[in-house]
Amino acid sequence: MIILGLTGSIGMGKSTTARMFAEEGVPVHDSDAAVHRLYAGDAAKGMEELFPGTVIDGVVDRNKLGQRVIGNPEALRKLENYIHPLVRQDADAFVERHRKAGAELVVLDIPLLFETGGTDRVDRIAVVSAPADIQRQRVLARPGMTEEKFAAILAKQVPDEEKRQRADYVIDSGKGLDHARDQVRQIVKELAQL
């Protein structure tokens, strides 16, 4: 079984591209969705111990948590040290389930693949990328996003150019959905031949 790591900086179209892989019949593990599940379940108790007052009715309130960690590097480090291993366990269980089921290819959608040292977990890497002006337009259109937040997020991410250089595949999401979908299909076809 081949494990394809899918990543890309904020606003590059990674989530949309992940759905395209799923539409091609490839099992996809979404790290962001795993965090949401964990925040509403197994991780809530630990989060309340780490950040008292951030759990409401057994679910982590992402806004309250954000107020505690954004702009606070020590708090952010505590959060990441707690949640990243849980997400990794969730992904490992996903991979094992699909390995046992005989899947030939799975995708791990990992936003911070390079930043968290996750490259050792995958056999190939696909980076979703778009021109900087398109990225900026997409991100600033998000509710609650500001120039300052965008700059802070970018500062924490490996630059897009470096991600593209380190990738086995680069999916250009700046040329429309059909173009991206064609690239996804080509990657699936190539990996099926390995």
Rank of each mutant, 00 (worst) to 15 (best):
L191F: 12
G13N: 08
N81T: 07
G117W: 01
R142C: 09
S129W: 13
P159M: 09
G46L: 00
G53V: 04
I10M: 05
A132E: 15
V59Q: 14
R166M: 14
G46I: 00
A141R: 05
R99I: 00
F94W: 00
L177D: 13
K156D: 14
K64I: 12
A155Y: 06
R142L: 10
E48G: 05
I153R: 09
P85A: 03
H179F: 13
G41S: 14
R142N: 09
D133Q: 14
I83H: 00
Y39H: 13
T116Q: 12
L38F: 01
V95A: 12
A44M: 11
L191V: 13
V95N: 08
Q157H: 10
K163T: 03
S15C: 07
E104R: 15
R136M: 06
L105H: 01
D168Q: 06
G174S: 07
S129C: 14
V69P: 04
V60I: 12
V35N: 09
A152C: 08
S31L: 11
T16D: 11
I134V: 15
A132G: 03
R166W: 09
H84M: 09
D168S: 05
V60H: 06
H179K: 04
D182F: 02
K14D: 04
R121Q: 15
A155V: 06
E104P: 04
R138W: 00
R124V: 11
L112I: 02
R181C: 12
H98V: 00
T54G: 11
E190G: 12
D172K: 04
Q157S: 11
A155W: 03
A40F: 05
L50A: 07
G102M: 06
K100D: 10
A40N: 13
E161K: 06
G66A: 03
